[in-house]
Design a protein around this nucleic acid. Structure first.
Length: 421
RNA sequence: GGAGAGAUGGCAGAGUGGUCGAAUGCGGUGGUCUUGAAAACCAUUGUGCAGCAAUGUACCGGGGGUUCGAAUCCCUCUCUCUCCGCCA
């Protein structure tokens, strides 16, 4: 959520920038500023009336102490009428506040000035390509055939016990999954992140804190009896650690492994085969809370960090800068990582690293104190490091040989074997 | 699941109708002292909104009510703790 004062200060610039997100904000901005003007003047009137009421009340108290009941009674009447007036204004005020809030939550984050315009993912800009796209042996297979050939994942068993999109990892397949989780966490810890293992269900309040509720509630699984939601990403619990917090030292760096649960309502068709799109998958997330002056440096460092992991896994990947049309509601600047999965000859998104600036922090009331003792909103950033299923898919597809699947060196000590035969 | 207790500032903890935005202690910050540090002592130390400021106003878990006046009384919701039961 944008802060009203920032909209006031940067109105024209924001309107121009939001055009990159294919949005015309001028009418919304004008109406929200007009409402806020009204809110301010109402607040002033209300404060005056309340001040009067407070004065009267204490005068009445004094009269009683002095035993002047009659004088007190006269003031009581006056006080009552003041109270009636204040009630009217208070109601008006809270209506104004609600209207303002209703508009503000509709406005997406302002994109960073470097974000290219564009309508869809087709307009994203490739800013880096790394690694060689492998030429596979003849008869190379997509991962859903490999997982069954080497008995790594049992999709049917998952369907039997739960439903489609809930795979069962078996034997070496399970060990590979667990190894990847540990490996990613270790890489993140080595980069200075502190590991957390948060709950996998969150309250409604947390859902609001990260903006998953009320807009995207159809995407989360809901345990209705207890009104808890299964997390769609570790970002939800971890970011909510910092709800109503005043930060003392920057940066705060968190990493967390969690399973992620997504209903994926409305998505169907091509991309759902194998590991490409699941209802439950594992992901290791990185989150940073940073001073506004440093958040873009931090974003770069997070991009480099994710790159270094993919380098070490010897996976070919490319980094895309998302165009305005593909940028999420909350993000100011996002880099997507895609790995090339040679068996299906496709680029698969495995990470999305974003700077949300103060957009999330405003809703969370996540602030810091500057040197003058003023409180200001922090910047929040997050990214996947990394999402497991598509990494898994690319790893086994790209490394398939006639003799089996050869795992990259970095994983040997984690998995306990170097080839899957 | 049954019974009870509670929710106050960064933390601990007083306050049961009117100088309470809130005692006191701890912690934090600044200072005095010291070669330096510790100790001691002094001062300072919540957040939002409006205002250039002075200041005003709101906030004692959330919402509602009683009253001229509520942290304090009433209703309601949420959460936490203790005991019992069940249980990984």
């Amino acid at each position: 959520m944008l802060h009203i004062n920032k909209i006031r200060e940067n109105k024209e610039a924001y309107i121009a920038l939001l055009k990159v997100k294919n949005m015309d904000a001028s009418i919304l901005f004008d109406s929200v500023i007009a409402l806020d003007d009204k809110r301010k003047s109402t607040q002033q009137k209300l404060d005056e009336i309340l001040a009067k009421g407070n004065k009267l009340a204490s005068q009445i108290g004094d009269f009683y102490k002095e035993g002047k009941a009659q004088e007190a009674n006269i003031l009581k009447e006056e006080s009552s009428s003041v109270k009636d007036k204040s009630k009217v204004l208070q109601k008006k005020q809270s209506e104004l506040e609600k209207k303002i809030q209703d508009i503000l939550v509709q406005i997406p984050n302002v994109p960073h000035s470097s974000v290219p315009s564009g309508k869809s993912d087709a307009d994203n800009i490739t800013i880096k390509e790394s690694g060689k796209i492998p030429t596979l042996m003849s008869g190379a297979k997509p991962h859903w055939e490999l997982t069954s050939k080497y008995r790594l994942i049992d999709f049917e068993l998952g369907t039997k016990i739960t439903g489609a999109g809930f795979p069962v990892y078996t034997d070496r397949g399970a060990r590979l999954q667990r190894a990847l989780i540990t490996y990613f966490l270790d890489k993140n810890i080595a980069a200075g992140y502190t590991e957390f293992l948060p709950p996998h269900l969150v309250s409604e309040a947390s859902g609001f804190g990260t903006g998953n509720l009320p807009d995207k509630d159809g995407q989360m699984y809901h345990a209705k009896d207890d009104n808890l939601f299964l997390i769609p990403t570790a970002e939800v619990p971890v970011t909510n650690f910092f709800r109503d917090v005043i930060v003392k030292d920057f940066p705060i760096k968190c990493t967390a492994y969690t399973p992620c649960f997504r209903r994926e309502a409305g998505s169907y068709g091509k991309d759902v085969r194998g590991l490409n799109r699941l209802h439950q998958f594992d992901k290791v997330e990185i989150v940073q809370i940073q001073h506004p002056d440093k958040s873009y440096k931090t974003l770069d460092s997070m991009v480099r960090h994710v790159s270094s992991i993919l380098d070490e896994l010897e996976l070919p990947y490319r980094i895309l800068q998302l165009c305005g049309g593909d940028l999420s509601f909350t993000s100011a600047l996002t880099f997507d990582f895609e790995v090339y999965s040679a068996g299906q000859q496709k680029w698969l998104e495995v990470s999305s690293v974003s700077n949300f600036e103060s957009f999330q922090a405003n809703r969370l009331k996540l602030r810091y104190k500057d040197k003058d003792g003023k409180t200001s909103l922090c910047h929040t950033l997050n990214g996947s490091a990394l999402a497991l299923p598509r990494i898994y898919a690319a790893l086994i597809e790209n490394n398939q040989t006639p003799n089996g699947i050869k795992l990259p060196k970095a994983l040997h000590s984690y998995v306990g074997f170097d080839i899957i035969k």
